[in-house]
């Protein structure tokens, strides 16, 4: 693993639950108890109404492809080329990820295509949520 140079997330107290969830193959969002707004990335208050009364909810894992690029410059730890995408979750929030399980080409990566979450181990502690075509 000497060549391993990917950036590894270091959870903070406010984000720990997200990474604990990912470790258990769960994609966790937060929802405001007051205004019902579902949001990401994590923080212990609602970004819409500032209420501190928020709950953790599990996302369905269903998403669509909102936008992306295909990186052609070599990057340690990544296949070349590789997609960097923003997906829109069924619950509303968007998040950055990679689209896996399909060719990394404009023909295979079509905007608004249905996706589903899959988890990839980055380290013993960190699973990254990635997305693959829903029909796969």
């Amino acid at each position: 693993m000497a060549e391993f140079k990917k950036q590894v997330p270091r959870p903070t107290p406010e984000t720990q639950h997200f990474w604990d969830g990912a470790k258990n193959q769960q994609l966790l969002l937060q929802q405001c108890d007051q205004c019902q707004h579902t949001y990401f990335p994590p923080r212990p208050f609602c970004p819409k109404c500032a209420s501190r009364e928020v709950s953790i909810t599990e996302a369905s894992g269903k998403a669509t492809l909102y936008s992306y690029v295909i990186n052609h410059r070599p990057l340690p730890g990544f296949d070349n080329p590789h997609s960097i995408a923003v997906v829109e979750l069924e619950e509303g929030p968007r998040m950055m990820s990679n689209i896996v399980g399909c060719p990394q080409t404009p023909e295979a990566l079509v905007l608004d295509m249905p996706l589903k979450v899959t988890f990839e181990a980055l380290t013993d502690e960190i699973n990254l949520p990635k997305f693959q075509p829903a029909e796969a």
Binding site: V8, P9, V69, R73, G77, M95, M96, S97, N98
Partner: peptide, 14 residues
């Protein structure tokens, strides 16, 4: 660092 960099963004071009 937690929610974008791990997905292989290598600076502004990506």
């Amino acid at each position: 660092g937690q929610f974008e960099m791990p997905f292989g963004v290598a600076g502004p071009p990506t």
